[in-house]
Design a protein around this nucleic acid. Sequence first.
DNA 1: TAACATAAACAACGTATGTAGTGTAGTTTA
DNA 2: TAAACTACACTACATACGTTGTTTATGTTA
Lengths: 191, 191
Amino acid sequence: MSSKLKELEEKLDPRVKRTRNLILTSFQSLLTEKGFESVSVQDVTNKAEINRVTFYAHFSDKYELLDYTVQKAFMSEVEKRNLNMCSYSPDNLRNLILIVCEFLVTLHSRCAQPHEQFESLVEGTFKKHLFELLSRWLKESKLPTELPATVATWAIYGLATHYSHLKKRPALETFVDEAFPLVAVNLEQFA
Amino acid sequence: MSSKLKELEEKLDPRVKRTRNLILTSFQSLLTEKGFESVSVQDVTNKAEINRVTFYAHFSDKYELLDYTVQKAFMSEVEKRNLNMCSYSPDNLRNLILIVCEFLVTLHSRCAQPHEQFESLVEGTFKKHLFELLSRWLKESKLPTELPATVATWAIYGLATHYSHLKKRPALETFVDEAFPLVAVNLEQFA
DNA sequence: TAACATAAACAACGTATGTAGTGTAGTTTA
DNA sequence: TAAACTACACTACATACGTTGTTTATGTTA
């Protein structure tokens, strides 16, 4: 899945790779500086030292750029922890919850004044991939998996959002201990 | 809560009420015609026959307008079914799930090509109110309610989104029968 | 009804967006 | 290495956004 994506990316024209990376890194550093809402396409292309029009050859707008960024970040996390090709187990679930929490905490620290609109956008992208992953985990089951996978996806993302918004965050492990059973109830039949 | 809001609105300058209504109805009909993404502030004010600048005296942008619209719609649904001031019971939960599903189905029928960004925005607003409602339901409990309320909020909204996106939707009652236990597991301790 | 307060209209401005056309320079393939 | 391809730069344009200042009209209060 994501390895296919990598292959595709590696075969690209070096100019394209270069430009895309310039856009990505400029975008990320601007995100930390000023926050998503106040970053313009102009800003990105200025920092990347490319022409503004070139930007539109790669992304249709800054929302698609955000999408792409989030997707890349999530996939690299998942691969790092080898969660991509496994099936449901309590341990895997714990790790997954953990990843999502970490991801959102990091996101908040790396993005100045993350406002609602921004978070909504990230959420949409992120959940899509989370759902795919969970569906893969439950795939071998003979039971219907759509609804449990849906509930789990949303519950995990919801809990992680909650955690990342707390003023005084407890230790991540502590939180995951509390959160885990709330998600696991509906998945245990697949263990 | 929402009654307070109504009181406030009724004391408004008639000119304000008039203008706001013009904006709201124009917006809604444009939503059905062209879909959220392709509606501009200009469009709204043209149809409402007010000056574009006047719009900004009422809403800071079209996103805030959407926010306001969703909020009003949700609250009126909740009040219609008297779900506002009660506490957790299986029956209330069923009705709540039902409302949310209906809301999203209606939304899709009333909005041309609802795209991701649009749905994300609706979701943000909607979940905020859903969470408040559920928290109110669980309030009297001595148990901690934050995490269960969070999970329930997200699970309900997730399931409703899933339902509203199905090509061939089963009868609403049937779906709610399936969905209900997945949400209720974590709330039964409050019954 | 007179005095006051303020909502809305109108004109004008600077900025960001997204698109189109043309030329140039870097990349791939034969 | 020559030919074909295409990513990028640059110019230009039409459109939408959000704000400011001024005037007019409508509503409120004394």
